[in-house]
Simulated assay, not measured.
Amino acid sequence: MKKNSVKAVHHLVDTYPKVPLTVDCVIFGFEESKLKVLLIKSDLAFFQGKLSLLGDFVKNNEDLDDAAYRILKERTGMNNVFLDQVKVFGKPDRHPGGRVITIAYCSLLNIQHHALNIHENELDWYDYDALKEMAFDHLEIVEECHSWLQKRIQEHPLGFNLLPDKFSLRELQNLYEAILGVSMDRRNFRKKFASMDLLIDTNEMEQDVSHRPGKLYQFNFEKYEKKKRKWIGIDF
């Protein structure tokens, strides 16, 4: 590279705006018919005692996706969680230290299948419905990711990964009501899923339950994949 070109590059680097970049992970879980979020207590004095998302700065030589998985691993010890990039948040006053842009990543997982190996800063699962105030703009980020999740679960069978291999329609409805935040008519809900023809009747009943035992079903993932290919025009 010519000397003038090198000087031009250095000038560009020196004058280019430098805005810190972070990643925040919004991890939703489902337990005891409640939607929960994995959170920690903020370690900044400015937000002392307030709940915060799992986040950190992106390293200069780090890909955004790599940063998200690194942060999740460092904060929780989990490394088998799939993350989706949801949205960028960049209001000038969102961070007390100055302008910081963050990229939100989201996941929905079965709490029973993902043990927390780290418990620093009171890392734990918190009820989504009980969240009132959080550090930074993290409550806004959680709300945005919840809206994204509500849309996703109506388009894809994400929720079935949160249920036992064999589940009742009562458990299925509890899951959808917890994520969508609405009460559903029992008859209409069951009629809708019956019309989708994606449930397999196991010919088994619930055991040791306090209510009237219901039938147990399994989700037909193979049939769903075939239907999905038809919907998008690639049936083969």
Rank of each mutant, 00 (worst) to 15 (best):
A104T: 09
A104H: 07
A104M: 01
A104R: 03
Y105W: 05
Y105M: 06
C106G: 03
C106H: 04
C106N: 09
C106V: 05
C106A: 13
S107D: 09
S107T: 11
L108S: 12
L108R: 03
L108C: 05
L108F: 15
L108V: 09
L109N: 08
L109C: 05
L109G: 04
N110W: 04
N110T: 07
N110D: 15
N110A: 09
I111E: 11
Q112P: 03
Q112C: 08
Q112V: 01
Q112L: 07
Q112D: 14
H113V: 02
H113I: 03
H114K: 13
H114M: 06
A115I: 00
A115L: 05
L116N: 07
N117Y: 10
N117S: 12
I118D: 06
I118R: 13
H119L: 07
H119V: 02
H119D: 04
H119G: 03
E120W: 03
N121R: 11
N121Q: 14
N121H: 12
L123A: 08
D124N: 15
D124L: 01
D124F: 00
W125L: 05
Y126P: 00
Y126E: 14
Y126R: 13
Y126C: 05
Y128M: 00
D129K: 03
A130P: 00
L131V: 13
L131G: 13
K132L: 15
E133Q: 14
E133V: 12
E133D: 15
E133L: 10
E133F: 01
M134A: 06
M134P: 10
M134I: 14
M134K: 07
M134W: 10
M134V: 08
A135K: 06
A135P: 06
A135T: 10
F136V: 11
F136S: 07
D137K: 11
D137A: 11
D137R: 09
D137N: 12
H138R: 05
H138D: 15
L139F: 04
E140L: 12
E140K: 14
V142Q: 08
V142G: 06
V142Y: 02
V142I: 15
E143Q: 14
E143P: 00
E143K: 13
E144Y: 01
E144M: 07
E144P: 00
E144N: 10
C145M: 02
C145I: 11
C145W: 04
H146W: 04
H146T: 03
H146C: 03
S147W: 00
S147G: 00
W148H: 15
L149P: 04
L149K: 00
Q150M: 05
K151R: 09
K151T: 07
K151P: 01
K151D: 05
R152D: 06
I153G: 01
I153P: 01
Q154I: 02
Q154H: 01
E155K: 10
E155I: 01
H156I: 04
H156E: 15
H156R: 10
H156K: 12
P157V: 11
L158N: 13
L158M: 14
L158P: 05
L158D: 15
G159I: 01
G159R: 03
G159C: 02
G159S: 08
G159F: 06
N161V: 02
N161Q: 08
L162I: 01
L162V: 08
L162S: 05
L163M: 06
L163E: 13
L163S: 05
P164K: 08
P164H: 03
P164L: 07
D165A: 10
F167D: 07
F167Y: 08
S168D: 06
L169N: 09
L169R: 15
L169V: 02
L169F: 12
L169A: 12
L169K: 14
